[in-house]
């Protein structure tokens, strides 16, 4: 078995663990190396990722298990103090939909969910540092996970492992390449 297969298998295992929460909603349901989160929090992050990268006629965040990637990166590639800010911000997050629409994020419709997230995109928002850190982390990692997913890198902007060429003068017209792989 090559390393590629091994990593894919590992991803399946991780994905599986995420999809099968073991505990009731008030108890920790996903155990990571550095923290636990609840079933509701898993749903929240999954939902936020799906609002950022929704399923259209192409796969969205849930299809690509970007939740799993976001959490793996928060768990394994993030400094402790940033993890703490992430968890604190996550705990504050539900205040935003409650204030805007008087209901939890999960009960918001698609448009309302987008409005909640778009409120973070405004430069003059008054959210706490931790809350912003939580949102920016989820967004950054969702986008990172999406643009580095196999789907994106084989179907959207095709990544070439072996380009075999360097064309230093590649003609562009109206912002677009004149020829495909000229």
């Amino acid at each position: 078995m090559d390393r590629r297969t091994a990593i894919q298998n590992l991803a399946l295992v991780i994905g599986g663990a995420v999809l099968l929460p073991r505990c009731s909603k008030s108890n920790p349901s996903a155990h990571f190396k550095h923290f636990d989160i609840t079933f509701d929090q898993q749903t929240l992050i999954t939902d936020i990722a799906e609002v950022i990268i929704p399923k259209t006629n192409t796969p969205g965040a849930t299809d690509l298990n970007l939740y799993g990637f976001v959490m793996k990166m928060v768990d394994e590639c993030t400094k402790k103090k940033d993890q703490e800010a992430f968890l604190k911000g996550m705990a504050e997050f539900e205040d935003v939909p409650k204030k805007m629409f008087s209901k939890p994020f999960a009960e918001c419709n698609k448009k309302e969910k987008e409005d909640v997230l778009k409120s973070f995109e405004k430069k003059d928002n008054s959210y706490s540092k931790e809350l912003q850190a939580f949102y920016q982390t989820v967004k950054g990692l969702t986008v990172f996970g999406y643009t580095e997913s196999k789907y994106f890198m084989t179907k959207e902007i095709v990544y070439e492992l072996v380009p075999g060429r360097y064309n230093a003068w590649y003609p562009v017209k109206n912002g677009k390449a004149v020829a495909k792989n000229g």
């Binding site: 793996k72 990544y159 492992l161």
Partner: peptide, 12 residues
């Protein structure tokens, strides 16, 4: 010969 998405942490 690994593609970017084959790295567990995408290079990090």
């Amino acid at each position: 010969n690994m593609y970017p998405w084959e790295f567990e942490h995408r290079g990090e």
